[in-house]
Simulated scan of single mutants.
Amino acid sequence: MRAIWKGAVSFGLVNVPVRLYSATENHDLSFHQVRASDGSRVRYKRVAQADGEEVAYRDIAKGYQAQDGTTVILTDEDLSTLPHRSSKEIAVESFVPSAQIDPILYDRAYYIEPDAMGAKAYGLLREALRESERVAVVTVSVRSRMTMAVLRVLEDVIVLQTLLWPDEVRDSAELNHLDEVSEPKESEVAMARMLVDSMAGDFEPSEHVDDYKEAVEALVTRKIEGGEVHQAAGEGDQDDSGEVVDLLAALQRSVDRAKAGRGKAG
C-alpha cells in the first residue's frame, strides 16, 4: 500500500509522525464510448464555447463564476496569496461525541499509520479516542484542499474521515413532496414495528454482493472467450485524460484462471 501523505498529527503539545493511506478503493464499472463498427475509442476535444476553437492545455486557466454569471480568471499567483495551513499537519481542534456528527457529513476515509518514532504517541492517541468514545475534530490538507475531518478508531488503526462542509449538504426543505406525508395511525406503526423486529439482524458487509458488476464481468468474459473483441489500431491501455483501462485486464486474468481451473479439472 502506497502512502499518499506524510506529516504529523498534533494534539496539545504532542506530535505524532504519521503516514496517510487511502482506506477505500473504487470498484465502479467503467464503460467507454466507442464506435460500434470496430470498437475504436471516441475522443473529445477541449473547445472554447465562444467560437468552437480547440484550446491547448497550456492555454487553459482557472475560472470562477460569480453569482451574477460573470467569470473571474484566477492565476497561480492569485491562488498563492490565499490563506492555507501546512499540508504536513493534522491539527486536532477538539474532541467531541461521535453522535454529534451526522453520518451525512462523512466523505472519504484514510488509514493513519505511525512512523517508527511515533508509535508510542500513536498508541496513546488511539487509546484516548477509544476510551473517551469521542472523535477528534481536525483540519487537514488532503490532495491540495483544506478540509475538516475527524479521527476515529477502527479496530487497531486510527482512521481519518474527511467531512463535507455544511454548505455542501443540500437543504432537505428544497424537496417537493415532504408536506404531503401524513402521520400514520398507531395500529400501522405497531405493525411496522413488528415487521422491523421480524427482520432485525446484524450488518455483515460480506453478505451483500454487487450482482450487477458480477453479471457484467461474466458477460464480458463470455464475449472474450467467444472471440467477440475489438483491438482498434493505435489504441493503448491509457487515454489522453490519464484514465487507466483496467477492467479488461482484470477480466482477462479471470479468463486465464478459469481456463487453468478447467485444465486441472480435466
Rank of each mutant, 00 (worst) to 15 (best):
R257Y: 02
G263P: 00
E183F: 07
M146Q: 14
S187Q: 10
R85W: 05
M1K: 06
Y57E: 14
S98H: 09
A23D: 10
D202I: 03
K213M: 11
E180Y: 04
R253I: 02
E217W: 01
V18R: 00
S86C: 04
G39K: 02
I224D: 06
V153D: 05
S206A: 12
L247V: 12
Q231H: 14
D115Q: 09
Y64G: 09
E127F: 01
G242L: 05
K6L: 00
I104K: 08
F11R: 00
L160S: 03
S98D: 12
T70A: 11
L105F: 15
L79A: 02
G227D: 07
E113T: 00
S86Q: 07
V16H: 03
T71D: 08
G242C: 05
A8Y: 03
S40V: 05
G118R: 01
Y110G: 04
L105I: 02
V140F: 05
G12D: 06
R143Q: 14
D202E: 15
I104R: 10
D107Q: 13
Q65A: 06
L29M: 13
S37M: 08
V138R: 01
L125M: 15
K45C: 01
I101D: 08
L251K: 02
M199I: 07
L124W: 01
G63M: 04
E155M: 03
L74H: 08
D171N: 15
A119K: 04
N176I: 04
R152H: 06
M191P: 00
A61N: 14
E225H: 02
V216R: 03
E243H: 12
R108L: 06
Y44T: 09
Q238I: 15
A218I: 04
T162K: 05
S80W: 05
V14A: 03
V55I: 15
T70R: 13
L195R: 13
V34D: 08
A136Q: 01
E188P: 08
R222Y: 05
L248H: 10
G52W: 05
D240S: 13
D59R: 07
I90T: 06
D38S: 10
L163T: 06
R143V: 07
S98L: 11
S10A: 12
P114W: 00
F31L: 13
A258R: 15
